[in-house]
Amino acid sequence: MSASESVKLTSLSSKGGCGCKIGPADLMQVIRSLPPAVPNPDLLVGLDTSDDAGVYRLSDELALVQTVDFFTPIVDDPYAFGQIAAANALSDIYAMGGKPLTVLNIVAFPISTLDKSILADILRGAADKVAEAGATLVGGHSIDDKEPKFGLAVTGTVHPDRVRTNAGARPGDQLILTKPIGVGILTTSLKRGLLSEEEIRRVTAVMSLLNKTAAEAMGSYDVHACTDVTGFGLLGHASEMAKGSEAGIIIRSEAVRILPRVRELAEAGAVPGGTRNNLAHVEGSVIFPEEMELLDRYILCDAVTSGGLLIAVPEAEAEALLGDLLQLGLEAAHIGEVTGDHPGMIRII
């Protein structure tokens, strides 16, 4: 057994489970306290719509897409952790309709207490995903920290007229989600030793899958809005889309693909704190069926790492796009629609 295999990385994370972001309610409170940004006509996407990345126009033909994401280990295999962290950070570029160009590694690592081979494996996993994305690693920054953390700062490019935001959904659009949910509950269960090796491989494969294929597929369609489903969960990111688009959203809960055993493990108590925070944050913006149980509400709000794209596409194109995604081997599903009713709200049916 190598040094990297003998250490359980998830046990070194004080947060545990999902590697969650700061909760949406706390984050919004902080952001509201900041002075307004200086207006800049070349800033095409900033903080206004809680979008996945910032977009800055360089010319009539070219804009930069910029994002950064990092978190504590959510799996024990260092190579897999590097892959997942890279896929998660790259996803923001894909959600905006962009192409990743360059990346910088962000490393916090207890270099005096953990074997250096662990960090090497993390970096190797990330490098392989960066290469798969067709991007170039140009450097990074590292600090000595008692808790491992890893991620990427990513710069991509997009045509200014082809930017996808979470604020363009229109009534009549159909909603397609390109990955199953339940990741946060499963990674919390992993930390508690409740998953089989096969289940660990399954959830790891979902998280480490780049959204490159989905983004390239949607590039052929008249997509009105897109976001990736990550720390704020499906309903959290759908709520941002509803508010940004000033439209209502309907989600058919039975159509949402959920990873195996998620509900069983949630019943056993493996619901991460980030998931609970997500539900508390969106409750005023979601109309749940009265009969929907609390656990099912948690699952729809589950804090995801490296989730799929939530795509709003015209009804006339939805079936073709879904067919393309399925043919490409993605676990995509048609989960709902955009409506002119209850703007800014989500209705679960």
Rank of each mutant, 00 (worst) to 15 (best):
T113G: 03
R347Y: 06
S112V: 02
T155L: 09
I106H: 03
A316H: 12
A3W: 13
V45E: 08
R164E: 01
L9V: 11
V206K: 07
M1H: 13
L279K: 06
L64N: 03
C301V: 09
L177T: 04
R257L: 10
V262R: 07
N166C: 11
G344L: 00
L321P: 01
K243W: 01
F70N: 04
P343F: 12
E283F: 07
P314N: 12
S142K: 12
S6Y: 04
L265F: 08
R164N: 05
L194M: 06
Y221W: 14
D302F: 12
T305K: 15
S13V: 07
V103S: 05
P78T: 14
P35T: 11
G273E: 12
L64C: 02
I200C: 03
A131W: 03
S239H: 03
L330T: 01
L90K: 02
E216K: 13
K191D: 04
S50E: 15
R32M: 13
V158P: 00
M1R: 11
L265E: 05
Y221M: 09
V282E: 11
T187C: 06
H334N: 07
P314W: 15
Y298E: 04
N278H: 08
A95G: 03
T10Y: 10
K191S: 07
L90Y: 01
V206R: 10
T136A: 14
G151L: 05
K149V: 12
A133T: 06
F232E: 06
G340M: 01
K129N: 04
P343E: 08
G284Y: 01
F81T: 10
G308F: 09
V103E: 02
L235V: 04
P180H: 10
I111V: 13
D222P: 12
N277A: 11
T72Q: 12
R263D: 14
D222N: 15
A333I: 02
D52A: 13
D222I: 09
I176S: 02
I346V: 11
P314G: 11
G97V: 02
Q174I: 10
L328M: 09
S33A: 15
T67P: 00
S306W: 13
I181R: 07
A25F: 14
L321Y: 01
G248T: 00
A332K: 00
A270K: 06
